[in-house]
Design a binder for these strands. Structure first.
Lengths: 341, 341
DNA sequence: TACAAAAATGCAATCGATTGCATTTGCAAT
DNA sequence: ATTGCAAATGCAATCGATTGCATTTTTGTA
């Protein structure tokens, strides 16, 4: 067993020299090419691992003009330019990261969510990645359409829109909005408010579910009960408190996120209302903290982690030129005390 | 103004051909080399932007043997192998992402936090990045030491340890633990529990601050009041409820995270205790949701976002071979109702 | 005007891996 | 022994940018 002196093996050429073959042969051996003799392959693979050698991924990707990177862009409210603090995002990110690593892809995190969606196509976010996952559409539906038209493989987490031309994965927003509202109605609530930015497609769909539930119960929708609440907690609270000062008659609230619901409960309590006795509250997402809020939050559960892997599978399918259809994940009502049940 | 026909310009050579110079000249012009004539530089830069050309970062990095990537690894509890749901992590990630983008670095997110810390040195996480930021030490102090010894530029967010050989950035954990505890004592509390995994250096330091505050008030520490609570909410609640069943006498709790504090409040309330009347609770981190919990959470504020940028600056300094010292960021008590104040 | 020095530009190697197209080897059939 | 064919291996170009070392152009000075 003569051991080669342990010297650094850093390239195909080094290994080829040691083995006395050409680097083409080594390359083929390590890539399981059928061109290579089975025994040669085995020998070279053994040699590679013996010398603790792995191919230089950077050189390989450069040669093959691939990056094995997927960008992830979190769409923020146009209002709050700060980073999101909603645990929903973290869970989603975890799901995406898991999915990507399964396929040996890396995750490039888009930091400053696109001050200018205009030149997104030329940004590193797009150019350095083989595909992009957008979490949320914000109010940038058209920019997304344009990007998809340009041939960039993109998948978007969000709600459906009439003239959508990109691949979409989302929850059953209309269903979620409907069951949240229906449940409140079943509890005897009649003056039900809707809190959220209805300019985003997701919330639009939830709102339509809300309207449908009202109609089904012969309740009149009231414009004053539809309130655009920022998704950022601090701002949300201010807006909600202003609203409460107007003494608008209401006995329940459907929120477009758990975080918003928690802010709402705080604002309501602050203003002397009791939840759920005076006003019932339903959230959306079922983030881990939802069941620990007081009162525990009734909410619409989205399988966020699963959503991440669906997003990954979809964008990879796109990249590989496969046919892919939109996906709608189920959304399920989780009843806890904040709705009075 | 004769416009060149708009054809794809995808390499230095293309641009050089158009400009009638060599690609070396173009390269130098775009890199602001002093070797180049100022006017030539201006002309070529204009030409580049006119043709919407930017250098191929992949080729550039390959040639320069750099990756411009920093890996970020979130250390999880050994217990809960799942993804973290603590908003603390998301804020930290945001801070890091902002800092990195400032320096034109990319962020590689380590997905499955190191099932095997053993071969970390050979993982893509380390090999594909110029440096690594670890958020938390978990119980992997020695593995981190080894990695640093191997010459990998790493920075760790955490608490100080005697034989530490890596660069550390952290909050003033001893101070935080001390002021949380002191404040409770000042409120008249005497039987103060400490909730958290004291095997991690951060919590160890917080615990020492807790002990110091007790000693200073001539209070006897009681082993039964030191409880290892998992950082995962669901598990935390179970453990806390078991604890409460033992009817151990206590009138206050110092927690090692806000998320844990919120779980504790829920468990306490569930078991019939009133917060803060029966038992006061103090959290740690001051995550956005802390002020919205009910009762609003007294906690130790860490400037998480700032921490992110300090981590980035530190790891980059390390990469560039500069001298860097550990950083301790201040931690400040934020008093809200959960402590009875 | 001539010549040296400085400034600007070009040439060509290089990073490490992949792969189309030779070329060589091995083996069977004639 | 020769031929033919398949299997295995080698050669060398290639991806796009950077940079040390010429080489050319410009500038300054005697």
């Amino acid at each position: 067993m003569s051991k080669n002196p342990p010297r650094a093996v850093s390239s195909l050429q080094d290994l080829a020299d040691i083995a006395g073959v050409s680097r083409a042969t080594v390359s083929r051996a390590l890539n399981n090419s059928t061109l290579i003799n089975a025994e040669t392959r085995k020998r070279l693979q053994a040699l590679a691992s013996e010398h603790n050698y792995t191919v230089n991924k950077q050189a390989r990707d450069f040669r093959l003009k691939q990056t094995r990177v997927i960008s992830v862009v979190f769409m923020l409210d146009a209002h709050s330019e700060q980073h999101p603090s909603d645990p929903f995002f973290l869970e989603m990110l975890g799901g995406i990261a898991d999915g990507l690593s399964l396929h040996d892809y890396d995750l490039l995190l888009a930091h400053a969510p696109v001050a200018s969606m205009r030149d997104l196509a030329n940004s590193r976010i797009v150019r350095n990645a083989e595909g992009v996952i957008f979490v949320g559409q914000g109010e940038e539906h058209e920019a997304l359409n344009k990007l998809a038209d340009a041939g960039t493989p993109i998948v978007v987490w969000g709600g459906s829109v009439a003239d959508k031309r990109y691949l979409l994965v989302g929850g059953d927003n209309a269903g979620g909005g409907f069951s949240a509202t229906s449940h409140l109605i079943a509890q005897g609530r009649r003056r039900i408010a809707f809190f959220g930015n209805t300019r985003t497609p997701e919330n639009q769909a939830r709102f339509s579910g809300y309207e449908k539930a009202l109609a089904q119960a012969n309740l009149q929708p009231d414009d004053k009960l539809t309130v655009d609440i920022p998704s950022d907690m601090q701002h949300a609270q201010v807006v909600i408190e202003n609203l409460l000062n107007k003494r608008i008659d209401m006995d329940a609230v459907v929120c477009t996120s758990d975080v918003m619901a928690i802010a709402a409960i705080a604002a309501l309590t602050e203003s002397g209302f009791s939840v759920p006795d005076d006003i019932a509250v339903v959230g959306y997402d079922d983030i881990p903290i939802a069941s620990f809020s007081s009162p525990p939050l009734t909410t619409i559960r989205q399988s966020i982690h699963q959503a991440g892997s669906v997003l990954v599978e979809s964008v990879l399918a796109l990249i590989n030129g496969h046919q892919v259809a939109d996906t709608t994940l189920s959304s399920k009502l989780v009843v806890r005390k904040s709705c009075g049940a």
